[in-house]
Structure formats: structure tokens, C-alpha cells
């Protein structure tokens, strides 16, 4: 049971270190998935995904400064 708990904790730690970074990325993907099709912007969907994710990432890194 302890081993299972340790493995689950390690797996969680594989994705989540800064909680706000993880939450920000998930929210951005959800927002893009909903809004871009409504606005008819799927044709720039890929680059838009990157720009949002890059902003969330930069904010997370700079928060440490």
C-alpha cells in the first residue's frame, strides 16, 4: 500500500510541481478548445495554443524571480 501511494505520488509529481503552472495550462487548453471553434479560428488554433501556453509558462517562471 505504501509502495502504491509512493508510485501515485511520484506520478502526480511527474506532472505537477508548480500548481499554478499546471492549472494555467489546463485552463488555457480548455478555453482554447471552447473559444477558438466558436470564433471560427481553428485555422490558427495550433499557433494560438502555443502562444497561450508560452505566456502561462513565462508567468510561472518569472513568479520565482
Amino acid at each position: 500500500m505504501t509502495l502504491l501511494r509512493t508510485i501515485l505520488a511520484e506520478l502526480w509529481g511527474l506532472f505537477v510541481d508548480d500548481g499554478l503552472l499546471a492549472l494555467g495550462l489546463v485552463l488555457w487548453v480548455a478555453l482554447a478548445a471552447i473559444l477558438l471553434p466558436i470564433l471560427g479560428l481553428e485555422w490558427v488554433g495550433g499557433p494560438a495554443l502555443f502562444l497561450g501556453a508560452a505566456l502561462v509558462f513565462a508567468a510561472s517562471v518569472l513568479r520565482r524571480s
Binding site: 506532472f15 510541481d17 508548480d18 503552472l21 499546471a22 509558462f57 520565482r64
Partner: peptide
């Protein structure tokens, strides 16, 4: 894709810091 993005962003953030 979402799991890989979280994993990659976490490692990249740690490497940058």
C-alpha cells in the same frame, strides 16, 4: 498531449530555474 505538456513544462521550468 495534455499530460506531455504538463510533464514537459514542469521539467523545462525546473531546468530554466
Amino acid at each position: 498531449g495534455l499530460l506531455l505538456l504538463l510533464f514537459g513544462a514542469r521539467w523545462l521550468r525546473k531546468a530554466v530555474l
